[in-house]
């Protein structure tokens, strides 16, 4: 564990907290993509299958990871519940039109072609990594369709993007300090994922400087 990894995870938790705070305080999930949340649910539930096999108390890191995994799984399930049930009438269904089955199918094909080992768990893990890289796309599309972005929603995406960027710092750190090599799959997907946020980052920082609400062109 290094400072980049810890900061990244903290930002990930903060982003989830911001998302729930936005929905709860405004009693509305306007501007939030159900499709992105659904994709995250698939990502977490395919990646964290090892929860069934790993003893949480094996080490301090395993314990930490287990807590985080359960938190990510339960919070994304709860978010989906809020959007689909309690605040259903505020959900922007008309604009949330990204065809996610292409993302899911594409990730599945990529996972069958590129994986660390030819075992079911490795292929499912690769699938989750590919899918996570593109899971934010429906959310970004929704914001582009509607243009005006609520502050708290833009903070949410900013935290999520920063979390990925910090993971890259973490990988560079581990490459040199722990001689951790052969992580090409996670590195490549993590970099692609971070790049997807680049455009958003640009407008976010611009809007923060001007002290205005974020407006996407």
């Amino acid at each position: 564990m290094n400072i980049f990894r810890l900061a990244a995870d903290v930002l990930h938790v903060v982003s989830i907290f911001l998302l729930l705070l936005k929905i709860k305080t405004s009693h509305s999930c306007a501007g939030i993509s159900l499709k992105t949340q659904f994709l995250y649910m698939i990502v977490f539930s395919t990646r964290y299958l090892d929860l069934f096999f790993t003893k949480p108390w094996h080490s301090a890191l395993t314990f930490y990871n287990t807590i985080m995994k359960i938190l990510f799984l339960s919070s994304s399930a709860y978010t989906i519940y809020l959007i689909r049930n309690r605040y259903k009438h505020t959900y922007d269904k008309v604009h949330d039109t990204f065809r996610i089955h292409y993302l899911i199918a594409g990730s599945a094909v990529l996972a069958l072609v590129f994986h660390i080992r030819l075992t079911p768990f490795e292929i499912i893990w690769a699938f989750s990594v590919f899918l996570e890289a593109v899971a934010i796309m429906p959310q970004l599309l929704l914001l582009q369709e509607t243009g005006q972005v609520e502050n708290i929603t833009s903070h949410y995406i900013f935290c999520l993007g920063s979390y990925r960027a910090l993971y890259i710092c973490n990988w560079i750190w581990r490459y040199f300090m722990e001689h951790r090599r052969n992580q090409w799959l996670a590195w490549a997907c993590g970099t692609v994922q971070t790049l997807l946020y680049a455009d958003f980052f640009y407008y976010y920082i611009l809007s923060q400087r001007q002290g205005k609400k974020l407006r996407l062109p």
Binding site: L61, N65, K69, T119
Partner: peptide, 10 residues
């Protein structure tokens, strides 16, 4: 699964 040191991240 045979995760090794390769899956110690979230």
């Amino acid at each position: 699964p045979s995760v090794g040191d390769n899956k110690d991240e979230l």
